[in-house]
Amino acid sequence: MNAIKIAVLLSILIASTLLIPGARAGIATSTVDQNGTKIGFNSNNGSASKIGTFDFNFPNGLGGLDFIEARIRLSVQLPPEAIGDLAPQIVFAKLGETNLDQALITGDAIRTDIRISYNLFPSGLGIVEKQTDFVNLTNAQNLALSAILASDPSSRLDAWLVSDTLTAITVPAFGEYVDLSGPFPIVVITRYDSTLDLKFVPEPSTSIAFTGLSLWLLRGARSWKRNRNLKFSNSKG
């Protein structure tokens, strides 16, 4: 009987230990080709440029994960007035959304606080590659992001660069320029890609559950050991 108890206890402990790494903090990264599609935004007073469809791989699923921060790298052309409150923001949306005004209302898209400012180094009147720092995601943004990722079997999302008022924003799929350094002019073509990083931690409830379970098992093990020692000393005495 004691041997069975030990085996059960051990199996529970091992199982809980195996589950814990799935809920460990980390950064999910996805790099994709830029899309470049531009649509109207904010009743066509502004614009939304599709950065791309990002593909995340969570081997243990999304359950029990809190997304706390995000950052992005992209190549973009912004007008000089795109600074401060006018700097365009990143929006995460379900795959294939083409009406972001509506998607933001229905919860199929979420606006983040990640802004891509003209001033963000390097700045210039042209296509430049910009990389933001990690920016905090609020709890509402986290929940919406989780729902968006969960809506796709491959945990994919569309990222958009949106501005309420500016339309002269380009997130190009390809960029061309004429190289005049040689004897003949050559058109050089560049393919642009973008990287989205999502920082996540185990959900507080999951952490509490795991800690509680571990403590409970530890307590049970101790009490079982104490009882066994007591029985052993009684039988000896």
Partner: peptide, 19 residues
């Protein structure tokens, strides 16, 4: 007015010329 076409001076660090 408010048309969204963009004209770069540089394309990823390379000069964008017109002829």
């Amino acid at each position: 007015t408010n048309s969204g076409f963009t004209v770069p001076a540089n394309v990823s660090g390379n000069v964008a010329n017109f002829f």
